[in-house]
């Protein structure tokens, strides 16, 4: 049985992951990748993402113009490869800066004493 706290945590984590997965996906697409290779790559790096979440996300990002795609029919089976577009690259760089800012600020609030010890406060 899951405790109440755990249930709440699961729900909040879902919301948290939704945004971070996008950054994770964009980070891996400076080289063309197909959906399932991304699932494996991200999984190996500790970012668990379900194919059922990733595939629709890839299409959405493509529709928004952040990704470009191409079908490769030379392989054993046809695969759709995705790659960052110019806009996608820009967006990714901006996102990384924002993300680092969030991490820093949150570290501050989660662990306020840490700031004092560093003498930065």
């Amino acid at each position: 049985m899951m405790s109440d706290a755990q249930k709440h945590m699961e729900k909040l984590m879902q919301e948290l992951r939704r945004g971070t997965i996008t950054i994770g996906v964009l980070s891996q697409l400076s080289e063309p990748q197909y959906g399932y290779s991304l699932v494996t790559m991200l999984g190996d790096k500790g970012i668990q993402v379900e194919p059922g979440t990733l595939y629709p996300l890839l299409r959405r990002l493509e529709k928004q113009g952040l990704l470009a795609s191409q079908w490769d029919t030379n392989d054993t089976r046809p695969r759709k490869y995705y790659l960052l577009s110019e806009t996608g690259k820009e967006v990714y760089d901006l996102l990384v800066v924002e993300w680092k800012g969030i991490v820093e600020s949150l570290n501050h609030v989660i662990n306020p004493k840490g700031g004092n010890e560093d003498g930065t406060d």
């Binding site: 197909y34 959906g35 399932y36 194919p51 595939y55 079908w71 089976r77 046809p78 695969r79 759709k80």
Partner: peptide, 8 residues
């Protein structure tokens, strides 16, 4: 979507 899903 069908071809992509089949590949997956």
């Amino acid at each position: 979507i069908a071809s992509e899903l089949r590949g997956l």
